Amino acid sequence: MESVTESPSAGEDPTSNLNLLYIISELAIAVLAAGGNGLVCVAVLRTRQLRTVTNFFLVSLAVADVFVGLVAIPCAILTDQGLPRNQFLLCLFMLSSIITFTQSSIFSLLAVAIERYVAIFNPLRYQAIMTPHNAIIIIVITWVISLVIGLVPALGWNKGPPQSGLCLFVPIIDMSYMVYFNFFGCVLFPLLIMFAIYARIFAQVRWQLRRIATERHGNAENREGNKAMSKDVKTAISLFLVLFLFTVCWVPLHIINCLILLCPICQIPLPILSTAIILSHANSAVNPIFYALRMRSFRQAFVNILLGGRRSKKTRIFPTSGSSANRATN
């Protein structure tokens, strides 16, 4: 989920202290993003109760964040210095990879929101709809679409090689692509859909809670159903907060992109630009911390891995129960 605008360029002649602080911050985030999200992937692979359809999509999100730490942030540091010079095609693919990982994160969050919607509104058909096989197909499709979207600049929608030969985001990537196509079409529109989905989920939950309050005495089956719904709701709240964090971290950078396109005479102060870029990258590092704080199963799995805990007993990779599978994210 790499930055989608220009990092502080050499042409802007930033102070050495600010440039050093930027690089140190980026490197720290890269280590946290790669290590933390790698831990998420290992936790799901090694822990039976974490192998759920919901967590498959979270692993897809984690993989994108691992690539942010290993590929996108190093590319951002290089382009901060205008590198590689006089290598236009290589520069284009580096900048395109930045966009690809961001887009994959968005689509992973969208898949999670849709999965939660099915779990809440159609629990009886959840197992038939959200099978592991279908989840893998969805993940592959989201990555393919993200790759196509990210490669659009490399396929021709760019400003061409700059005369300076420097590899910088804004002089090469067309801001009309970044604002109208990428932000409005591929980022903002999915975000609005996701917020609408969660709003619908929480409205349904509120209605269910009112219904439960009027039915003070329920049979065992109703109580069990209410318990399962409560767990689904808790999961939905946690995942909505992940979406909220993503939005808070990325929207400032996209707003700056809009200013660059729509207000060419507007000057973006270097500290604000650097802060927005670092904030967008920091989103890749915060999700594992959030899982550890919010989701008990992930927290326990992280502790077991970090302390060298013995791998859980071999069992089926995919759970067979929709509701029981969803509990693992709590």
Rank of each mutant, 00 (worst) to 15 (best):
N283D: 14
A285W: 08
S297P: 05
L261M: 12
N257G: 10
L273D: 02
V286K: 07
L273R: 09
L261K: 03
Q267P: 00
N287Q: 13
I278T: 14
I272H: 10
C263I: 10
H281A: 03
L261C: 08
H254D: 06
F246L: 07
I268T: 10
A292D: 01
L241F: 01
F246A: 12
S274K: 10
I289V: 15
L293W: 05
L239D: 01
N287L: 09
S297A: 12
A285R: 00
A276W: 00
L243G: 06
N257Q: 07
S238R: 06
N287P: 04
L293E: 03
I278D: 05
P252L: 00
L259V: 13
A285G: 06
N283P: 11
L241S: 05
I265R: 14
S297V: 01
P269Q: 06
Y291F: 15
I289A: 09
L245N: 04
L259D: 11
P271F: 11
I272S: 08
R294N: 13
F246K: 09
M295A: 05
I260T: 11
P271K: 08
S297F: 01
R296F: 03
C266L: 14
L243N: 08
I278F: 11
V251G: 10
S280L: 12
L239A: 00
S280T: 15
Y291H: 13
V242F: 13
S280A: 15
L261E: 03
L241G: 01
C258G: 15
S297L: 01
S280W: 02
S284H: 06
L241E: 07
L261Q: 09
C258K: 02
A285S: 10
A282M: 15
A292I: 09
V242Y: 07
F244S: 03
L253F: 04
A292V: 12
V251D: 02
W250S: 06
V286I: 14
C249I: 05
L259N: 03
A285P: 00
I265Q: 13
A292H: 01
L259R: 06
S274L: 15
I256T: 14
Q267I: 15
F244W: 13
S297R: 02
I277K: 02
C266D: 01
C249D: 01
I289T: 14
P269Y: 05
S274D: 13
P269A: 01
L243S: 07
S284V: 06
A292T: 00
A236M: 05
I255Q: 07
H254N: 13
I255P: 05
L253A: 08
N257H: 02
L270G: 04
F290M: 10
L262I: 03
